[in-house]
C-alpha cells in the first residue's frame, strides 16, 4: 500500500473536507424537508376514518399518494439534482489533492 503524504499546513482547510461539509449540511436539509412533508401530510390525511370508503389516486389510497408516493418521486428528483448539480468531483487520493 502506498504511503499517504500528510498535509502540514494548519492555516488552510482541505477542499474535500470543506465541500463534504457543505454536502453534509445539504443532505440534512433534504432529509428535514421530506421528513416534514411525510409526517405533516400523514398527520393531516392518513389517520382519518376510512370505514365509509377510501379515496383513491392511481389505485392507492389518496393519503399514500400525497404523503408518500409524491414526496418519494420528489425525493428522487432532488437526489438527482444533488448528485448532478451540487456534488463536486474531487480527487480523493491524498497524493493528488
Amino acid at each position: 500500500m502506498s504511503d499517504p503524504i500528510p498535509p502540514t499546513n494548519p492555516n488552510r482547510l482541505d477542499d474535500v473536507f470543506v465541500q463534504s461539509r457543505r454536502e453534509l449540511v445539504s443532505i440534512l436539509l433534504i432529509w428535514l424537508v421530506f421528513a416534514g412533508w411525510v409526517i405533516a401530510a400523514s398527520d393531516l390525511l392518513a389517520y382519518d376514518d376510512a370505514s365509509e370508503g377510501v379515496d383513491l389516486v392511481f389505485g392507492m389510497p389518496a393519503w399514500v399518494f400525497w404523503a408518500i408516493g409524491l414526496p418519494w418521486i420528489g425525493a428522487n428528483g432532488v437526489i438527482f439534482w444533488f448528485c448532478l448539480g451540487f456534488m463536486k468531483d474531487q480527487s480523493l487520493e491524498s497524493e493528488e489533492t
Partner: peptide, 25 residues
C-alpha cells in the same frame, strides 16, 4: 407500512452520501 418505510425515499442519499466522500478520503 408505506408510512413505516417512507424514509427509504431519502435513505440512499443519507446513508450513502452523508459521510461517504470524507470517509473515503
Amino acid at each position: 407500512l408505506a408510512l413505516w418505510i417512507a424514509s427509504y425515499m431519502v435513505v440512499p442519499v443519507v446513508t450513502t452520501g452523508l459521510l461517504a466522500k470524507r470517509l473515503n478520503q
